[in-house]
Amino acid sequence: MSGAAASPAIELRGLRKTYRKGRQTVTAVDGLDLRVERGEVFGLLGPNGAGKTTTVEICEGITAPDGGQVQILGRQWRTGVDTEIRSAIGVCLQETKFHDKQTVRETLELFAALFARGRSVDEVLGLVSLQEKAGARQKDLSGGQRQRLAVATALLGAPELLFLDEPTTGLDPQSRRQLWEVVREFQRGGGTVLLTTHYMEEAHQLCDRVAVVDQGKVIALGSPDELIRSLGAAHFVECDVDDFAGKLGEQELRALPGVQACTFAPTRAELTVASVHTTVPALLELLDARAVALRDLATRHATLEDVFVSLTGRHLREGA
């Protein structure tokens, strides 16, 4: 078992999975490689349909891959150790409806009984701050409480590795923060987490490392800060004007100090810059000199969203 203990929490090599949808074959995972170290919170970030859930379900042993290697805590599914793996992982699926008429405590007692050893129901209730709702039935819980209950069922077996598939989708900001705290607490206790999300902020706040997934492949990998730094610029300057036409061209904006990229429209420009304080004075001076009337000026930090846009030319969430 020393070999298993030294192995990474998750190792995926050349993972492939295709589905038949009517007459079409859809490739959900297309040669995906991934290594999640023990003790880290690892995020799979990508748009809907990128293959995140399929990848996680392969890791959880729910779905068998068509090709590639899967190692979970140094073990492989379907080699006679499935129960061992299941005893060591905790799973929170994207959508689970527990028994409507059972209380939080009863639901947790059911799941606690499935594991040979693990945490007590009361301990887990404390971890997810649901002590006051212990006697409430599932149907009387809010969305955030239900989601914390789902995470609580995953914590009962005292897992080494926790899978969270879009744990905060549809939750209000406060519920989201509460869940983040649960995840951090789990990590402080030495646990490893693989989570999927399409919220950039969540990935940035929570994850030690992030894999950006698109069309079944990992297209970028690193800590959130590394990924953002890889853009070469950490800031954006957005300016709205009455009209650039005949007064100022895209080339002149690109030539301003510190500008690395520029998207240009007749009444709007977005500059990617290394430092705001060198570019903005020069920009204002240039606009003034050409008599372009400035309507709005805003600066912001680059986000993982920008990383995704720069890699794919698309936004993470449609309409975002």
Binding site: E60, I62, R86, I89, V91, T96, L114, F115, T153, G157
Partner: peptide
């Protein structure tokens, strides 16, 4: 499905 990913 949720039950299937436990040792049950």
């Amino acid at each position: 499905r949720r039950l299937s990913v436990t040792p049950l």
